[in-house]
Design a binder for these strands. Structure first.
Lengths: 225, 225
DNA sequence: GTATGATTCAAACAAACGTTTGAATTGAGA
DNA sequence: TCTCAATTCAAACGTTTGTTTGAATCATAC
């Protein structure tokens, strides 16, 4: 109150961030107007430009708010594993657990918006929006370097291309896991009850590890097929 | 020319569909204006409304053009497998090959827009746009029914929930495989050369089958963890 | 040629967009 | 009470949006 200048962290700012996070997840960036955001946040239309400067800056703020914490948690988990291993290579399953488990924990937190954010993040992977992608790539740079490097060391016999692609596939599987199952199966007359959060983690993790451990593809045989 | 009324399948119509397909893939539905589409298609602004009626109708037309063929090819492949099996259950790996292999073949066709469309389709999974989702769900209904049913028969010991989730995960992995790897790893100083199309299929298929065959998750142990 | 239906075109429409403005309102310190 | 900065607000800004219009152009059949 005394040392800090004047950063009441305006309650309005947070309401706008929460509303924007949810609406971006539901309708995308271009599909969400400032009037929709400020309306849902019970704020004046001009509030976004006052607090953030522009819509683009708001988008970045929405990501920055959670992304930093997520990536720090991931790096901390990897640090812990590498410290335990003490020079030895960390087991691949532990590395995968550290990366994707951290994300799933955030996605399981529905009360503080973690789930909303992870669904927004999943959605954003497939939106080649120029500056959002640039922003995400910068945020991910160190994390990717560390985790892929750990996997390279853990799987010295496996080509690095192969590891990167499998990691990429795992990201896709996680993305869909978080997005939920109702997307396509809803109208199909199939039972599609939503996943209980505590079941998602072991379910997905088993699949991911199965995929990671799969035998290497035989390009020679398949190329002529 | 004589029996058909007047359907010259206006060359303009196709140019608009091609341009829209590509631009929707790059910028999303809301991020792509009619002026951008008609500009890229060398057509007049009013041409979209003349040939399709509205922007929403154009979106549906873009999907309908390829989706029907893709799903028919999938069903035909499954028909073939079931005929070969002659009453017996089809091997899970063959079922997965039929569903995802068909999609990958379309994605490998870069010349006639198949690749563009598959990337658009992947992107659309994560866009809960109301009426596009409805449209996709209807298009997928029969295919999902058939393929999941075949998997249920092929894996009688596995809970149906588990099969549906793993199929969903596989869709996510395929989605990311088609979208390409450069999304996140670009700025990270990692080698991220694009995949040669012929290598994508065995690479992804090996991962998918590894995930499908993974041991079932142990919910009991993990729930208390 | 002339008529007819299909297609293209430039121009305009109202609505929604992100942003800016300048005056109100607020709240704490002097 | 007065001050001053932070915040809110209604109103307007100039663009861009999807769509419509009515005349021009094209191609074909008579």
């Amino acid at each position: 109150m005394s040392t800090e200048p004047h950063l009441p962290q305006s309650e309005t700012r947070d309401r706008i961030l929460d509303a924007a996070e949810r609406l971006f997840m539901e309708h995308g960036f271009e599909g969400t107007s400032m009037r929709l955001i400020t309306g849902a946040a019970n704020a004046n239309l001009a509030a976004v430009n006052y607090h953030f400067g522009s819509k683009d800056a708001l988008i970045q703020a929405v990501f920055r708010r959670r992304m930093t914490a997520l990536n720090e948690a991931r790096l901390a988990a990897l640090d812990r594993l590498e410290a335990e291993a003490g020079g030895e290579a960390v087991k691949p399953s532990r590395i995968v657990e550290a990366f994707f488990g951290t994300a799933l924990e955030l996605a399981a937190d529905a009360e503080h918006g973690g789930n909303t954010f992870m669904r927004l993040l999943s959605r954003t992977y497939n939106e080649p929006n120029a500056f959002v992608r640039q922003f995400l790539a910068e945020e991910y740079a160190e994390v990717m370097d560390r985790f892929l490097g750990a996997l390279f060391r853990a799987l010295p016999g496996v080509p690095r291309d192969e590891i990167m692609w499998r990691f990429h596939y795992m990201m896709g599987a996680m993305s869909f896991a978080i997005a939920g199952i109702e997307s396509v199966y809803a109208t199909a007359g199939l039972p599609c009850k939503e996943e209980e959060p505590s079941r998602m983690r072991p379910r997905l993790m088993s699949f991911l590890l199965g995929g990671l451990r799969a035998p290497l593809p035989d390009f020679g045989a398949a190329a002529t097929d």
